[in-house]
């Protein structure tokens, strides 16, 4: 964790009184976007290097070598890892003790400004356009864009900004399971999603597979995306039943003989499977599957009330509090 503000902290010491200023939030959101676009997280890099070394088939080995060369090139040149920035989005963890000088409107303005600036500075593709007219303002900002999801963390005095960039089209799917489908139904839905998108490499494997189980239909999809995008490779859910399912699904995904780019390979299709659950209707299990491509892009910056800014290796989106169970 490094201080990226170069001593701004002391200059901004009065923040404690008035809250975090908008300029500091804008710089933090900008830095989160920059990291997401250009720098793969360390856990992801380690996973690809390991796969490259293990792969025994020539074609996928060649692909993994190129993937490793590419993330070095992106970081060295400060180029986007992937040309498809997707629809850049923000996940924000808000400490319950945090105050913002201009309130939350100021935070949201900071995020929109940072998104427009980074699009121009790094020459990101401007994907965000009107869904009917296709009018494109050219800055990845528009109606509901970038989308910001919030969650609250108790006893914390920071805002943590996580930018996620994920290319479009392939890899996500939904299934409404009924009470009689049980665990085999969950396995089958994951297998369906891999059969649909993993063959021919449409998901850009190696992937992280996020599975969202339960809640409402829309919620199952949201937590599937969060599971894939906001947890580090190797992480296991604290609920042992969920963790066991994660292991089982990872084993299945890697038993199919698919390697990088969908070619026949030995080193595996997925770097990990993350499952998130939400309590759901007693008759149904809505289920989302989100397969996150090898350009696994997230950037995390935390801004504290005393003006300190730190980049972090992984977001703290999931916590004991966010997965709490009881009434209080």
């Amino acid at each position: 964790m490094t201080d990226t503000t170069g001593g701004l902290g002391s200059v901004l010491s009065p923040v404690a009184g008035g809250g975090i200023p908008e300029t500091l939030l804008e710089e933090a959101a900008y830095e989160a976007h920059r990291l997401a676009a250009t720098t793969l997280p360390d856990d992801v890099k380690r996973a690809f290097v390991g796969m490259r070394d293990r792969e025994q088939e020539e074609l996928p080995k060649r692909v993994l070598e190129a993937i490793v060369d590419n993330f070095h090139a992106a970081e060295d040149d400060q180029r986007p890892v992937c040309a498809d920035v997707g629809v850049p989005r923000i996940y924000a963890v808000i400490g319950n003790e945090t105050a913002i000088a201009g309130g939350f409107v100021s935070f949201e303005r900071a995020v929109r400004r940072a998104t427009g600036r980074i699009t121009s500075d790094l020459a990101l593709r401007s994907n965000r356009c009107h869904p009917i007219t296709r009018r494109n303002p050219g800055n990845n900002v528009g109606v509901f864009a970038p989308n910001i999801e919030y969650r609250v963390e108790p006893d914390a005095d920071y805002i943590e900004i996580c930018a996620v960039h994920k290319g479009g089209a392939f890899g996500t799917d939904f299934r409404m399971l009924v009470d009689g489908d049980g665990l085999p139904g969950i396995r089958k839905a994951v297998l369906d999603a891999i059969a649909e998108f993993g063959r021919r490499g449409l998901t850009c494997p190696p992937v992280v597979i996020g599975v969202g189980l339960g809640g409402t239909k829309d919620q199952s999809f949201s937590i599937a995306k969060q599971a894939a995008q906001l947890r580090p490779i190797g992480d296991r859910h604290p609920d042992p039943d969920v963790a066991a399912l994660e292991d089982e699904l990872l084993e299945m995904a890697n038993s199919l003989g698919i390697g990088a780019m969908g070619y026949v390979g030995t080193a595996g299709y997925a770097t990990d499977v993350h499952v998130e659950i939400a309590y759901t209707h007693s008759a149904l299990t809505p289920m989302g599957v989100h397969q996150l491509c090898q350009a696994t892009r997230r950037g995390v910056v935390r801004v504290h009330m005393d003006g300190r800014t730190e980049t972090r290796p992984t977001p703290s989106w999931f916590s004991d509090y966010s997965r709490r169970m009881g009434v209080e």
């Binding site: 060649r62 692909v63 993994l64 190129a66 993937i67 060369d69 590419n70 993330f71 090139a73 992106a74 040149d77 180029r79 986007p80 890892v81 992937c82 040309a83 498809d84 290319g167 490499g201 850009c204 990088a260 780019m261 491509c293 090898q294 350009a295």
Partner: peptide
């Protein structure tokens, strides 16, 4: 294209 996401290398 290789890996479907080696855009920085192609960009170079």
């Amino acid at each position: 294209t290789v890996g479907y996401g080696i855009a920085a290398l192609y960009g170079r």
